[in-house]
Design a protein around this nucleic acid. Sequence first.
DNA 1: CGGTACGCCTGAAGGC
DNA 2: TGCCTTCAGGCGTACC
Length: 289
Amino acid sequence: MPELPEVERTRLSLSPLLGRTITAATLRRADICDSFSNAGTPHRTASRDLLTGATISSLTRRGKQLAIHTADGRTLCIQLGMSGRLLLLPSHAPHRPSDIPPHTHAIWLFDDNSLLLFIDPRRFGGLSTYPTEHALLEHRWSALGPDALSIRASDLAHASENSHRPIKSLLLDQSALAGVGNIYADESLFRARINPSTHASALTKPQLTSLAGAIRFILARAIKAGGSTLRDYADSAGTRGTAQFLHAVYARANQPCLRCSDSLLTIRVAQRATVFCRRCQPTAQVKRA
DNA sequence: CGGTACGCCTGAAGGC
DNA sequence: TGCCTTCAGGCGTACC
């Protein structure tokens, strides 16, 4: 389940594509792709622009979304969803049909004979194409909050104002901050010692500062570790991550808290399994005189 | 309109 | 052993 660290590792692993030209592209499942016209209206057309003929000029990321930019200005936005991944097959190996894994929905061929595959068994991910980078920023990324990797306490304060939602629900809201999913939300809240059910507007300034720092730390550390490989995540070179071994609470329900040894609890917040320590992340107490 | 509920989809895992 | 059910979850959409 790729979140910001896994998408960032995927982005970094695609650097061999810079300067390469797409000589052919195949869309094997049309329903994973949206195209945007110059007017910005999303629509599904018979021919979708998978950047054929274009030369890759840069690779960017905002939150969990990845964008491939080309020298002629076109932009392809890739959302990995829950089970999506990219696989880059290098040019020195001959490609056989058996090289193409199941659930491969799009294939790009490059001028050096390398192949890029978009694989997504659950199809929660997808591709969106834009005629310009501006169209991507205007019509898609404008809906995203600030990138979680550089989130500041003031950003969280702004998003938390007058919000009665549980703080975990806010962290998962990509329009509030972009990049945090269920895993890193739980990890960040544990590190900041904040109860996931706390109303966002009830957080104190020190708590917001702590939380922003925890989010940046947890995400940066996970990137360094290559991302979390829980089931089958790997970057585009096939390299798996080890950040799952750093998790303090995620998927550790009923196991001892690494800080106090109390048994970790599971509850549901915002429809998501949520693991926390009731002693290290206590429910906010009403202040008494 | 802020917030919650649901459905999409497949494979892993658990129960009987 | 094997079939059936449940769960996992990002995110768009429906709903109160």
